[in-house]
Nucleic acid binder design. Structure first.
Lengths: 134, 134
DNA sequence: ATAACTGCAAAACTTTTGCAGGAGT
DNA sequence: ACTCCTGCAAAAGTTTTGCAGTTAT
């Protein structure tokens, strides 16, 4: 456990939520200016391999890292306004069971991102359509 | 409709399944050596925008493109052996309904990739564990 | 001591963009 | 004609790698 590794995990914890390697790098650098971005990647990958960290792509092909929490959770990402809502894992439980029963497949859905349109944007869109019929 | 565009869509059709821009590029080049990779990307993006083509990341951060089929489908990707199995859309229907009911969220799950361990690798693993107890 | 970790620099890799010229309708 | 499309080259962006030196245990 080097001081860089500690600082990287601490930064991930301090920032909270889903963070890119770059964001973590920026914070670590305030304390250890010599730390390199590749070290950040190496330690995040290690965290993922050890099961301490999960990674998700919330869109745009950029990985985001987060500490594993007590309660597994997922995300609903609005493709219109960009809002990211949290989703309890239990909603995925029936799907997980169905995949196992019907396909013998053990799904690793630890940190899912589901894309779509959020409730707010739905009603906003409906209101707009009422204004401009046709 | 230029001859490049036609060739790109034809290549996607001919190859079938999920293809990377690079794969399509290679095939198109056998017929039109002067075609550029950026043209492939531009036309695939156009196809996606028109709803003729779907894109999925089957792992590794590389986009894969596929013609839209009559029946919407998804994929089960085995993280151990790399097998990609097909998943009927109806399995996702309850989840879609739950997200709408509980969160007012309209999920755009048109071409999902779910990662995990396939049935074969499950039994292979169990067999190995029986061999090496402990 | 020795194995693991780091910094640096450079590259790998997919994807995007600006621009000038060319093709389609 | 006039817009859309393409080729080229270059860059943008994230992530990986080789290597030599340093650090942890």
């Amino acid at each position: 456990m080097t001081r860089q590794r500690l600082a990287i995990f601490a930064a991930l914890a301090q920032l909270g939520g889903h963070r890119t390697a770059e964001e973590i790098y920026e914070l670590v650098r305030t304390q250890y200016p010599e730390v390199n971005l590749s070290t950040v990647y190496r330690n995040l990958d290690l965290g993922v391999a050890l099961g301490l960290v999960t990674q998700t792509d919330l869109g745009g092909g950029i990985r985001r890292f987060e500490f594993v929490r007590a309660a597994r959770h997922h995300h609903l990402v609005c493709q219109q306004c960009g809002a990211v809502a949290e989703l309890e894992d239990e909603v995925l439980e029936p799907l997980r069971a169905a995949l196992h029963q019907r396909h013998g497949f053990v799904a690793h859905m630890d940190h899912f991102a589901i894309f779509g349109i959020c409730a707010e944007c739905q009603s906003r869109r409906q209101a707009a359509e009422a204004q401009l019929p046709g």
